[in-house]
Write a protein that binds this DNA or RNA. Structure first.
Length: 1048
RNA sequence: GGGCGCUUAGCUCAGCGGUAGAGCACAGCCUUCACACGGCUGGGGUCGCAGGUUCGAAACCUGCAGCGCCCACCA
């Protein structure tokens, strides 16, 4: 690559330039090809669900390609011999319709004008012209498909497999031809399988009743009333059915009615299966040629089948006076004629089920015709067993049930289609109608020897060839090395919308012909919808075009977005803002690398574990975080939890690496400690390299680009010349001590930043009076070692770190933060708003009291102590201790402030309330009242209390081995308690406000606006109890630290 | 008619027995020498409703409600 030696990057990430660069590079080196002769590496194969050859990439394709590419790239980097097979589907009806449409538009011709042969030539031309488009689009997405193996469902190899399967199934008696009712699309002029019928409920339908006069009236009984939703079918009625046990009609069974329009008499039959005596009149008109139920009745009773609606949806000659009319016109005509004869018995609204053609949306017509079927039950049984035995498993698991339910109730599969584009059925007829099924055109009729043979004109259902895809593409029926190496495939990744159409058929065919399931795992991805959860459609205008997105935001951003949104069992609602967000992430990664490049000059990366280098606590921390990110990412990928994998890397890169480590490393890079700098360089390189590797399957382009630049900077030892050939990071042990040990440093920095934020001290103001104390021994050492970083990250000068757990001095004009295992005092002489600081501390103490109450109550409950696991109880005890310690420290600080300034009335009230809190339990604290009354003694009293508190705290810290840990966790609880307090206050205030007047018109602008937006209740809460929800100084640090530590 | 899924912060969603989270959006501060596609800080949640199990439920069970999807030959 010409640019391979660049060691600098542009300021911002430009995806267009980068994404163009790498696909040809990968192809050239043959990285995507799976070697069927490779015995050294385990195989991992996927067949891409073949998109329609006419298709253009939509988000469904983008999703499926992304997820499969993530798997394939991950496995490839993990040492597998991967093979991902591309191809396209001829898509019978869809393609034929498109070409017909074009033909009509450009030449005003129908396919019949051209004739079969000429038309098919046109379709092939079309295929040649546009068939590669979708492949190119997959390349733009970065899909690492094995193009050498690209297939088409109608190429010679696939066609041969289709004929072979057809012939064998026919020989086995599993394919047969029969005349029965099928779903017919009058618009597409073809039979359809059950699956291609879209069921719908027509609410504007009606149930119309009319009378059939008895041929021989019998006293009062002169007619029998039947009901129908399809009046036109009465022209094909050949019986009226009643329930055999129905007393009303028992006497009529066996007698006849007269057809009022056609010259025909119909028998009245008894049928217990068809007729529900409670529905309608309890008498049913029977139309064997146009209704599936009636068809069965007809067979049971030997009734005549009269086809009155033809393949074009018009009435046939058998419809007598209505012959030639459209079926819907005929419906109205029939009603009119019957009414004229006085036989109309009224209509009522009725919701009727309608079947529509999946393709054309035309209302389908059950039609009697000769079609080919697959006898499916014998094929389904083994496919059910395979799943029961776990040979193939579904993810998410719930789809197992869907699959099973359908398979157990499966109907024979109508496979013939009256189309031209497709695999023509390998059956030939002689003049006498004998059928010869053969792999190639036979010379003579197998039955009578006639040489006058004509091939069946129908073609096979598209899904017939798709069903063979996993093995037809690998050379079946030959016993190829490719099949031996890559069949069964490892994963079938597709949408749940084609679980029956495709997945089930592949299972049946694969097991039957290969003797082995076609895939070990079926991962069914969610459907992509728009941000409101609606299906994307051109008419709604809510389609997000992946090609536009790729152009605008980059393929990497699109891929990452799709992966990050792919949670199991939920549709994806995609908003463009999400993609924007992940484009920003790509830019972040770009700039992190850019930063590294600027600071790695002269650094030569060695292929040794960075943990072997002498490193600082910060270095050890990011190395531990890196390993955790690796572990979590790999675990998520193994479980097909794409969203988790993506989010893990995202958080690691942006949070740990960029927000923290890079900032920490600056101190090393810009300082003059050569050893520290070298360690930081090695560490940063390792962390960044790992991030690139982890990300590669999700964002192949940018990671490849950055890999090359980084590699050029730090030397090539152990770095392949493509990230694609590098090893995926492996799970390993996380240095939890290093993660935990750094917690106080992070906590202290965040605590100081928080004080800045809350006290309105801009970052550029250097804090020159900072004391850090109450540290445990190891924490003290770490903080001392990393003090330079604390200085830099919090813009502090000469912070004092106190020894042996000593607490910071009590001084006025200061803000104090108490965190887990540390306490920080920030002197803000002249800059502090004491009232604000005092109020802040008050609120924190109020929260602590809430927590103390809650934990105290829990621990006072004997059954909790007795029944809960000891660790849990212990944890709560430690937390109680933490809370108490913290409260004492804050109280001491507050007392100090109280001494510095007159306390407001509001605060007094609050303090008094706190003192009255019975769950407080700590009676030693200095009551505020005392402070007020004896101002002169305060200093001494406070000092005494503080000493006690510190002593107690130190004891606690030493006693509990995990003091720091539980402390960090303890801090998190503040949040909940605080919220609880707010909630209670809200409830009270809401109750109080209910009767109060509406918010005044002239209220402050911003709250008023929010109030309007959020509704009265919340607005009230906002106005009245704003402050208590304020967080404590270090809580965010604690939260993050806890999150960082992870739960394991 | 049968089945499945969903209901958690304004929005999109994680979490699925032990201290309510993320991204975006929002507010304040910051044009600090990787990144304004940026940084720091903050505000915002009776985890759909009602019962039950449990020491403990957003999580498990039951019922209900709303939304969505799939399957289905009742005229």
């Amino acid at each position: 690559m010409e640019n391979d030696n660049r060691t600098e990057l542009a300021k911002g990430y430009e995806h267009r330039e980068v994404e163009e660069r790498w696909y040809p590079f990968w192809l050239e080196r043959g990285y995507f090809h799976g070697d069927e002769n490779d015995r050294t590496r385990p195989p991992f194969s996927i067949v891409l669900p073949p998109p329609n050859v006419t298709g253009s990439l939509h988000l469904g394709h983008a999703l499926t390609a992304t997820l499969q590419d993530v798997l394939i790239r991950w496995k490839r980097m993990s040492g597998y011999n991967t093979m991902w097979l591309p191809g396209t589907d001829h898509a019978g009806i869809a393609t034929q319709m498109i070409v017909e449409k074009e033909l009509r538009k450009t030449e005003k011709l129908t396919r019949h004008d051209l004739g079969r042969e000429a038309f098919l030539k046109r379709v092939w031309q079309w295929k040649e012209r546009y068939g590669s488009r979708i492949g190119e689009q997959h390349k733009a997405l970065g899909a690492s498909l094995d193009w050498e193996r690209e297939r088409f469902t109608m190429d010679e190899q696939s066609s041969r497999a289709v004929r072979e399967v057809f012939v064998r199934l026919h020989e086995e008696g599993l394919i047969y031809r029969e005349k029965k009712l099928i779903n017919w699309c009058p618009d597409c002029h073809t039979a359809l399988s059950d699956l291609e019928v879209e069921h719908e409920e027509a609410h504007q339908g009606e149930l119309w009743s009319f009378a059939y006069p008895l041929v021989e009236p019998d006293g009062a009984t002169t007619e029998i009333v039947v009901a129908t939703t399809r009046p036109e079918t009465m022209l094909g009625d050949t019986a009226v059915a009643v329930h055999p046990d129905d007393e009303r009609y028992r006497a009529l069974v066996g007698r006849k009615v007269r057809h009022p329009i056609l010259d025909r008499e119909l028998p009245i039959v008894a049928d217990g299966v068809l007729v529900d005596p409670k529905f309608g009149t309890g008498a049913v008109k029977v139309t064997p040629a146009h209704d599936f139920n009636d068809f069965e009745v007809g067979k049971r009773h030997g009734l005549e089948q009269i086809t009155v609606i033809g393949p074009d949806g018009r009435m046939t000659e058998a419809a007598g006076p209505l012959a030639g009319k459209d079926r819907f016109e005929a419906r109205q005509e029939v009603k009119r004629i019957i009414a004229e004869q006085g036989l109309d018995r009224g209509a009522k609204p009725h919701v009727l089920p309608l079947g529509r053609c999946q393709r054309s949306q035309t209302v389908l017509e059950p039609l009697l015709s000769d079609q080919w079927y697959v006898r499916i039950e014998p094929l389904a049984r083994p496919a059910i067993e395979a799943v029961e035995q776990g040979k193939t498993r579904f993810i998410p698991e719930q789809w197992t049930n869907t699959y099973m339910a359908w398979m157990r109730n499966i109907h024979d599969w109508c496979i013939s289609r009256q189309l031209w584009w497709g695999h023509q059925i390998p059956a030939w007829y002689c003049a006498d109608g004998h059928v010869t099924v053969a792999r190639a055109a036979p010379d003579a009729c197998r039955t009578c020897g006639s040489r006058e043979l004509r091939q069946d004109e129908d073609v096979l259902d598209t899904w017939f060839s798709s069903g063979l895809w996993p093995f037809s593409t690998m050379g079946w029926p030959e016993d190829t090395q490719t099949l031996r190496t890559f069949y069964p495939t490892s994963v079938m990744e597709t949408g749940h919308d084609i679980i029956f159409f495709w997945v089930a058929r592949m299972m049946m065919m694969g097991i039957h012909f290969m003797g082995e399931v076609p895939f070990r795992t079926v991962y069914l991805h969610p459907m992509v919808r728009d941000e409101k959860g609606l299906k994307m459609s051109k008419t709604k205008g809510n389609v997000i075009d992946p090609l536009v997105i790729t152009e605008e935001y980059g393929a990497d951003a699109l891929r990452f977005t799709l992966a990050a949104l792919t949670a199991q069992g939920r549709d994806i609602k995609l908003a463009v803002e999400r993609i924007e967000g992940y484009r920003a992430f790509a830019n972040k990664l770009w700039n992190a690398t850019r930063f590294a490049l600027m600071n790695l000059e002269g650094h030569v990366h060695r292929a040794v574990s960075p943990t072997k280098l002498a490193v600082t606590p910060a270095d050890r921390w990011i190395l531990a975080r890196t390993q955790r990110a690796v572990n979590d990412t790999v675990a998520a990928l193994e479980g097909f939890r794409f969203n988790e994998a993506a989010n893990t890397v995202y958080q690691f890169v942006w949070g740990d690496l960029c927000d923290w480590y890079i900032e920490l490393a600056k101190e090393a890079f810009y300082g003059d400690d050569a050893g520290k700098k070298a360690a930081a360089q090695a560490t940063l390189t390792h962390a960044l390299k790992t991030a690139l590797l982890l990300l590669h399957p999700f964002m192949p382009f940018i990671t490849e680009e950055l890999w090359h630049v980084l590699r050029a900077r730090v030397g090539a030892e152990g770095w392949p010349d493509s990230i694609l050939a590098a090893s995926y990071p492996r799970a390993g042990e996380v240095d939890e001590a290093a993660e935990r040990g750094f917690g106080p440093v992070i906590g202290i920095v965040e605590a100081i930043r928080n004080i800045r934020g809350e006290m309105n001290v801009p970052f550029k103001v250097v804090l020159e009076d900072v004391e850090i104390g109450s540290l445990a021994r190891e924490a003290e050492a770490t903080v001392r070692e990393e003090l330079g970083r604390v200085h830099r990250l919090a813009n502090v000068k000469d912070a004092r770190v106190l020894s042996d757990g000593a607490a910071p001095a009590k001084r006025g004009q200061s803000a104090v933060a108490v965190g887990a295992g540390f306490e920080v005092r920030v002197g803000l002489a002249g800059a502090i708003d004491l009232a604000a600081e005092s109020a802040r501390i008050d609120k924190e103490i109020a929260k602590l009291d809430q927590d103390l109450a809650s934990v105290g109550k829990k621990l006072e409950n004997p059954s909790f102590v007795a029944k809960a696991p000891p660790e849990v109880v212990e944890k709560d005890r430690a937390r109680l201790a933490e809370l108490r310690e913290k409260k004492h420290k804050l109280e001491a600080h507050r007392a100090m402030i109280s001494n510095s300034e007159t306390v407001s009335t509001r605060r007094q009230t609050m303090e008094n309330q706190n003192e009255q809190n019975p769950t407080n339990g700590e009676t030693q604290s200095t009551p505020a009242a005392t402070v007020q009354e004896a101002a002169g003694q305060v200093q001494t009293a406070v000092a005494g209390a503080v000493e006690k508190v510190v002593a107690t705290a130190t004891e606690i810290a030493k006693a509990a081995s995990s003091a720091v840990v539980s402390g960090i966790e303890g801090l998190r609880k503040e949040r909940k308690s605080a919220r609880r307090a707010v909630k209670k206050a809200v409830a009270k205030k809401t109750a109080a406000k209910k009767t109060a007047a509406k918010p005044a018109r002239g209220a402050k602008k911003a709250p008023a606006r929010k109030a309007a937006a959020r509704g009265g209740k919340k607005a009230a809460a906002k106005r009245t109890v704003k402050a208590p929800a304020r967080k404590t100084a270090a809580k965010k640090g604690a939260r993050k630290a806890a999150a960082r530590r992870g739960k394991k």
